[in-house]
Write a protein that binds this DNA or RNA. Structure first.
Length: 433
DNA sequence: TCTGGGGTCCTAGGACCC
DNA sequence: TCTGGGGTCCTAGGACCC
């Protein structure tokens, strides 16, 4: 039995992030209810504090709250991921002023490993307030910080911080137990909608109940993941932050269609476009895929639900758009059933690997002709990427993607804010009188 | 009428081999 | 002929996260 070293983790989380971003350039909306909708103006994905207070639930279908918009009771935005990504990058860069050991966990969250900073309890408080105040001052985004001796406990602390202010330190055992006793088991990081009732059947209703069970019993009846969760809640360190972002293993591009699609031609243009976008991302990452998976489905909310997907491998790993489109459409032809109203399609590039190492392995076996043709393909893709990054998305497309200039014709985005921070045409204008 | 998008990890079960 | 254990690899499905 080894004595585990004392560790300290922090979790920074931006409050109502997407809604806060939208408020940044709209001072008139301060203290007003604001919600942000999902990609297709489908459901609510972010709510300002004021929107939460008037009872708009997370994930609410837009059509159910549209009356509030019409009555002027809430301000609605379509999602503007370029803006959110840009603001997120600024915040994450700033955070590294306090510690380089951060893991950007999501667009609005970052873990910090503070073990080496040797912060006593007084300095921990100063540390948290310093960060929240400075980030608010420099970016305008309100953030919360939680501190704990494991990542899971930092997450718990952050949850408490949001409820009781902006900062919370549960390093102290007594504080930790008090907070855990108040936290419903379903709100613990790693307990989702299926595990919650399963725990509750065993009278595990709070985080404190969960912390009190035998980890080995949990492993036997649940899995190793939940065993680690129990240990982490007790301050036993199982999870570590990853300061370098892990390479993606797959790239998924999928969309719901605003109006259902029935004909093969339209559906195939979408699938080709999704494949092209996925390939572009892979090339940006410097990766190649070993195969592609295509999925289509009709509306879940109708009786005749049809859902089908299939995968196919490539002869050699690639991110070459025409090759991937060709394979993806081959799959789509197998999956497509006439007289169905398709609501959604997705394309996933599978088993991504580093392009350079695949290239150096393959080159040994290539003939001169295949080597030349591969080089030509790469140059073509580079040219396509350059044109599209210089002149805007879809400046050049492949024939199978369709020539419809509005790639979003099938999706709705009626309430989008300008790209204030990423487009010269959309720079906010300030006037002095 | 209108219901998001993009990821990861673990497990169970089957195929196959020795 | 039948029987058995143990290992690996793959896939589908299920769970979670934001």
């Amino acid at each position: 039995m080894s004595i585990l070293p004392f560790r300290l983790y922090g979790l920074l989380d931006c409050n109502s992030f997407f809604a806060s971003c939208e408020k940044l350039f709209r001072p008139d909306l301060a203290n007003k209810p604001v919600v942000v909708l999902s990609n297709n103006d489908g459901v609510v994905v972010a709510r300002s504090l004021e929107a939460k207070k008037i009872g708009i639930p997370m994930g609410a279908a837009f059509f159910k709250i549209k009356h509030l918009l019409n009555a002027g009771k809430v301000h609605v935005f379509s999602s503007n991921f370029r803006l959110y990504g840009d603001i997120s990058n600024r915040i994450m860069r700033l955070l590294q002023r306090w510690t380089p050991d951060i893991e950007v966990y999501s667009i609005d969250e970052a873990f910090m490993d503070l073990t080496g900073l040797g912060l006593n309890s007084e300095r921990r408080i100063d540390f948290m307030y310093d960060i929240t105040e400075q980030i608010k001052k420099w970016t305008g985004i309100p953030v919360s910080i939680g501190l704990g001796t494991t990542m899971t406990l930092a997450k718990v602390a952050n949850d408490a911080a949001k409820k009781f202010g902006s900062c919370c330190d549960i390093t102290d055992n007594e504080v930790r137990e008090e907070i855990l006793a108040k936290l419903p088991v379903g709100d613990v990081w790693g307990v989702g909608r299926k595990l919650k009732p399963k725990f509750e059947r065993h009278s595990i209703n709070t985080a404190a109940d969960l912390a009190a069970v035998d980890p080995l019993w949990v492993r036997k009846n649940f899995s190793i993941v939940q065993e680690q969760l129990v240990r982490e809640l007790n301050g036993e360190h199982c999870l570590d932050i990853h300061t370098a972002p892990a390479a993606r293993k797959s790239i998924q591009v999928s969309r719901s269609f605003h109006d259902a699609v029935e004909d093969f031609q339209t559906l195939s243009e979408s699938v080709a476009s999704f494949a092209a976008k996925a390939c572009e991302e892979a090339r940006q990452d410097g990766t190649v895929a070993s195969g592609v998976y295509v999925h289509v489905n009709t509306s879940r909310f109708r009786d005749s639900y049809y859902s089908a997907g299939s995968a196919i491998g490539f002869d050699c790993p690639t991110s070459h758009t025409p090759t991937v489109i060709h394979k993806a459409l081959e799959l789509l032809r197998q999956l497509f059933q006439p007289n169905q109203l398709y609501k959604r399609a997705s394309v996933i590039l599978l088993e991504l690997r580093d392009a350079e190492s695949v290239l150096s392995q393959g080159i040994l076996f290539d003939t001169d002709t295949t080597r030349e043709s591969k080089q030509r393909s790469r140059k073509l893709m580079q040219a396509v990427d350059n044109i599209n990054s210089t002149f805007g998305k879809r400046s050049v497309v492949f024939g199978s993607q369709g020539i419809d200039r509005e790639a979003n014709a099938v999706s709705a985005k009626h309430y989008c804010s300008p790209s204030y921070t990423s487009s010269w045409d959309s720079l906010p204008v300030a006037k002095a009188k």
